[in-house]
């Protein structure tokens, strides 16, 4: 069984305006993973998704989905892909049931009322099945978009900013839904502005900026490699001795000392530091460690490549 479900080679996109949206993208997405694509606005995330889904033409390069070329074997490739777009774009005059059924048929699948019922129930849309979409709330409309994308049982699901404009509860529901889908073997690729979302769910992270894929890494590896760990020491009394020769950050009130260290290193330097503080009679009130968040890593990466 092939490991890669999506494979892009030397993918480039330059729009008619001359704007280069993608610059030589090589990306492989693995079967069954949740891949988060992060990047600032205009970085090229949506363009990349739209090319893979067949909505935008690439200027050059190739894309394969499950080994099928998305241009030459578009029927096979597209039937395996589902897309939840960023915008809530659906016919507002249609009823929920009808629009989901339409999507399934459009993707070449015969009617399956039992499946549509299950999808609508899973997404808490069953009670709204006969409602016109225009009468639904923004969060409900986003669920409808998800139901449409799932209606043809795709093996790969693209979620373009799935949490944009939805409340915390719905976001949690969506995350649970995504995790459930992954368990059933669906590969999920999501773009998001909420880095918390990527940190919570993704197996691997890709960072794109100005059309260039600047990093693809296992999330845990990324946090380990690029993340910093810090030891934060709170003192009982303000620091009264000179510790300028140590790599410590001392707070303005001299009550907090921050020591950054590499947790993978054999010698972290923590033991000698604590011994020295003890020798100098400095009493600790509290001691805790802190890890960099994915957000901090992301900001650092994008800032470095700007």
């Amino acid at each position: 069984m092939e490991k890669d479900v999506i494979s892009t080679q030397s993918l480039n996109k330059t729009y008619a305006s001359g704007f280069r949206a993608l610059d030589n993208i090589h990306l492989n997405i693995y079967r069954g993973e949740i891949f988060a694509l992060l990047g600032p606005n205009g970085a090229g995330k949506t363009t990349l998704i739209n090319i893979i889904c067949g909505i935008v033409n690439a200027t050059s390069g190739s894309v394969k989905a499950f080994g099928y070329d998305i241009k030459k074997e578009y029927r096979s490739a597209r039937s395996l892909i589902g897309l939840v777009p960023q915008e809530l774009t659906t016919d507002m005059f249609e009823k929920v049931w009808d629009t989901v059924k339409f999507s399934r048929n459009l993707f070449g699948k015969p009617n399956d009322d039992a499946l549509i019922e299950k999808i609508l129930k899973d997404l808490s849309l069953w009670d709204k099945r006969n409602s016109r979409i225009m009468t639904l709330s923004g969060g409900m409309k986003r669920r409808v978009m998800m139901a449409k994308a799932l209606s043809h049982q795709p093996d790969i699901l693209f979620l373009d900013e799935p949490s944009a404009g939805v409340d915390v509860e719905l976001r949690r529901d969506m995350w649970n839904m995504v995790r459930h889908l992954r368990k059933t073997g669906v590969t999920i690729i999501l773009t998001t502005h909420y880095i918390e979302e990527a940190q919570e769910m993704a197996d691997r992270i890709g960072v794109i900026n100005k059309g260039k894929l600047i990093l693809v890494e296992e999330k845990n590896e990324l946090m380990k490699k690029l993340g910093k760990r810090q030891l934060i020491l709170t003192l009982k009394k303000p620091l009264h001795v000179d510790l300028e020769d140590t790599p410590l950050n001392i707070s303005a009130d001299r009550l907090e000392l921050t020591y950054s260290f590499d947790s993978n290193a054999e010698e972290t330097g923590i033991a000698p530091l604590l011994k020295r503080l003890n020798d100098q009679g400095i009493e600790l009130k509290d001691l805790r460690t802190k890890e960099s968040s994915l957000e901090e890593i992301f900001v650092k990466l994008v800032g470095r490549n700007s």
Partner: peptide
């Protein structure tokens, strides 16, 4: 309205 995304992404000639 933008709903053409669904037609363009469908396996339809």
């Amino acid at each position: 309205s933008g709903t053409i995304y669904e037609i363009l992404s469908a396996p339809i000639s």
